[in-house]
Design a binder for these strands. Sequence first.
DNA 1: GATGAATGAGTCTTCATTCAT
DNA 2: CATGAATGAAGACTCATTCAT
Lengths: 204, 204, 204, 204
Amino acid sequence: MAAAPKTRIQMKNRATILEAALEVFSANGFRGATLDQIATAAGLSKPNLLYYFAGKEAIHAELLTSLLDTWLDPLRALNANGDPIGEITGYVQRKLEMSRAYPRESRLFANEIVQGAPRMIDEITGPLKTLVDEKAAVIRGWSEAGQIAPLDPHHLIFSIWATTQHYADFDVQVRGILRPDGEAHFDAAAGFLQSLYERALSPF
Amino acid sequence: MAAAPKTRIQMKNRATILEAALEVFSANGFRGATLDQIATAAGLSKPNLLYYFAGKEAIHAELLTSLLDTWLDPLRALNANGDPIGEITGYVQRKLEMSRAYPRESRLFANEIVQGAPRMIDEITGPLKTLVDEKAAVIRGWSEAGQIAPLDPHHLIFSIWATTQHYADFDVQVRGILRPDGEAHFDAAAGFLQSLYERALSPF
Amino acid sequence: MAAAPKTRIQMKNRATILEAALEVFSANGFRGATLDQIATAAGLSKPNLLYYFAGKEAIHAELLTSLLDTWLDPLRALNANGDPIGEITGYVQRKLEMSRAYPRESRLFANEIVQGAPRMIDEITGPLKTLVDEKAAVIRGWSEAGQIAPLDPHHLIFSIWATTQHYADFDVQVRGILRPDGEAHFDAAAGFLQSLYERALSPF
Amino acid sequence: MAAAPKTRIQMKNRATILEAALEVFSANGFRGATLDQIATAAGLSKPNLLYYFAGKEAIHAELLTSLLDTWLDPLRALNANGDPIGEITGYVQRKLEMSRAYPRESRLFANEIVQGAPRMIDEITGPLKTLVDEKAAVIRGWSEAGQIAPLDPHHLIFSIWATTQHYADFDVQVRGILRPDGEAHFDAAAGFLQSLYERALSPF
DNA sequence: GATGAATGAGTCTTCATTCAT
DNA sequence: CATGAATGAAGACTCATTCAT
């Protein structure tokens, strides 16, 4: 077993495998992904893959846990003492930027959750719920203070997730309809979402 | 060969199979679903399943095409001659209602699109794009006429898809965070989205 | 699943598989046996094997449970009301006859028990112990009544198992040393064991 | 190459490996044992194991040959000039003592022989047969001289092997039935076997 | 001497699909 | 129409052994 990476080559190979696994899992889902695909993508033999990770589940689990933390950073950064509308639209923009920069991570989670999150449900009902509830309380404070419009904070957060991750998770559909040059449409999306939330949140 | 359903029993069995397949495909994705699961869910033997459909792909394809049409009805109903804001929020509500009533259909599409829509890409770049472009033109007309705020119509439509389908596609996450009684949270979502879009679209 | 054999072909194939499995498991032990060997011996394809049995473990388990009952018949037949020495030497002869006629069954159990009986321990501490304790009580009655010599009944039963099964379990060693023609040595063994136990049990 | 152990550390490691291998092979059989298990039990790395031995087969072969000699010492000690019954029961007791003290060695051989002795057959038909034939001749001499009962000497030796090794090879079964405290049952076995053979061998 | 890294050859099992009735 | 039976291909995982240092 190679529970914790020790040597340089181990760290490098583990990283290579996780990168390849992210590619494959995000594109095919857990069941649809094969170790052969991951091994090929990583440039390693299948048994060598299993020298570094206990199995398919272990690779997937490692991916989920190691990425979830980073994934929630934008929400954690929502500052109770900042300007309310600026904080929220800032969060929208950071989240959209993550969809642009890390679409595979987004799809990895999307695949998992769409299928009932069998390997993530504890993270959702535990740490994620805690964080969301905490930030929702902050937002509720703002709306009760009249600093933003009286919108349900939980559903507001959901709407931000939905609208921003949409550009990663449903990328192929967005591109099929917009036929954009590269990632130009992300700028349009940024502008649209900025307007949408500024208008919706404005207390007047 | 069973090219076209003829007898009453044939039609009934095809419907039963499609119902079972929707259940299984939406919950597991294409690769994660097995004919055994579908056959069991349908109460038929596996060979009998394949008497009605040419194979796993054929069942999935039939599901996608037969459902896509209905799936787009709410958007088709967007009336160029109606009240702009009412038309759009009405669309939002119909779409949300579909997420409530037909979450499996939503997840079927979500699974497919998240994984790059390998079996749907032609529908997206063809009929879907055409419809969306047409309705986007209508919305653009409204905003150019000052009847609604000047928001990008394509991204507006995306945001509506995203925010409404979120309650079906990410159901397990929504429930893990809100811990709702049954479907109570759909009413809250309806209210939230009504406010969100009324505020955002209001031209003043 | 094919939990219970229904059709004639199923019964025939299940029997064929169990016969092949007995051959392979008894000769190689559980870990040493492969489904390939069993499939080949049964004249079936490996997947077809697994159509009849859930897996390697299931085949082995079915063998053990279905054979154990028959295996204990000779001991069950020990009659408390018969002539003591005749009953015991009769048991010895029946047991030896089983080693001659069913050496593979004997080796199947031997393989399992030598390796700690991981898949049989419950049968041993349950039904087997109960049966042995019961028959040991009968034998103890005889020896307390002075009808046979005062030998420990449990160890007497063990010695009978050991001496008779030896000709099945250690067959290759017995043959390597005696170099018998066919099974001629079984007759000599029968005579030897008859003398051994008659002499040892005789109360005088 | 490590043809013959030279240094002190080499001898120590070879001994450690053989000890670990005995543990693992006796408990799992040849096919059921893995080099990983042996390496772990020996506290060495797998490649290091293979520095000392050419491979799995080599370790097993070394074990068998190095142990067989000791294993036959009790029989070699059977003294043609001693008291016949005392010599034979003495052999029984020494053999039983070996089952008590070295059950793993007994099971190592049992595993091998039950599965047809593929790696031991030459030892059996060669040196072992020679030794047994020689001692059988001694016993035959005693019985022809009327010093012991006229029992077939080869089968007598087999019965001694069977009854004594039974307590090592079928240990789990014996314990499952007797539920002894520790090794108390070995004393009962010793008494039982002493009686059994004294009675059976007594010429009157 | 010792070990981290790597792999070819299995070995069990799953699954979409076909065959035969 | 329906199904019991059968299988080729794939897929996860194991293991003895080798390589490189």
